[in-house]
Simulated scan of single mutants.
Amino acid sequence: MASKLLISISEDSQDTLDEHIAIKVKEGIKKGFEEFFNNPIERKMYLTKKEACIYLSVSYATLQKLIAQGMPVIQIDGKILLSKVSINEYLKSIEK
């Protein structure tokens, strides 16, 4: 059973706390946007095998196994690309 702790603080302290929380939230949002925009893999729809390894946090050998087991790829003039949507759908389909 959860219990509650009530703390009374002055209005000035509440204002200071609210400002501090707002600053931390803005910093967190800014950091998230910076990470997103500084990471080219997050912005791309189609990945090379190397990028797909990073995206999945797996080795090249593991990616090759996933492809051999049926993960869809796109081949254009000998270059292999993987769709992030297809990667996610494939992983969902083999999820246990």
Rank of each mutant, 00 (worst) to 15 (best):
M1E: 06
A2C: 06
L5F: 15
L6D: 10
L6A: 07
L6F: 05
S8D: 07
I9C: 08
S10V: 03
E11V: 14
E11H: 12
D12W: 10
S13C: 10
Q14F: 12
Q14K: 13
D15A: 08
D15M: 08
T16C: 13
T16Q: 09
L17S: 03
H20K: 12
I23V: 12
K24I: 05
K24E: 07
K24M: 08
K24R: 05
V25E: 14
V25C: 05
K26R: 11
K26Y: 11
E27G: 11
I29T: 06
K31P: 02
K31M: 07
F33H: 09
E34P: 02
E35M: 13
F36M: 13
F37M: 06
F37L: 11
N38Y: 14
N38S: 07
P40V: 15
P40Q: 05
I41P: 04
I41N: 04
I41C: 06
R43K: 12
K44I: 03
Y46M: 15
L47I: 00
L47W: 01
L47E: 01
K50L: 08
K50F: 11
K50P: 07
E51N: 09
I54K: 03
I54F: 08
I54E: 00
Y55F: 06
Y55Q: 02
V58H: 01
V58K: 00
S59Q: 07
S59P: 09
T62R: 04
T62A: 15
Q64E: 14
K65N: 13
K65E: 15
K65T: 05
L66Q: 07
L66R: 10
L66C: 12
I67F: 04
I67K: 00
I67W: 02
A68M: 07
A68I: 03
Q69L: 12
G70T: 03
P72Q: 05
I74M: 04
I74T: 07
Q75W: 09
Q75E: 12
I76V: 13
G78L: 04
K79L: 15
L82T: 00
S83P: 09
S83H: 01
V85A: 13
S86F: 00
N88W: 03
E89G: 11
E89M: 14
L91W: 04
K92C: 08
K92W: 10
S93E: 12
S93A: 14
I94E: 09
I94F: 09
I94A: 06
E95C: 15
E95G: 14
E95H: 09
E95L: 13
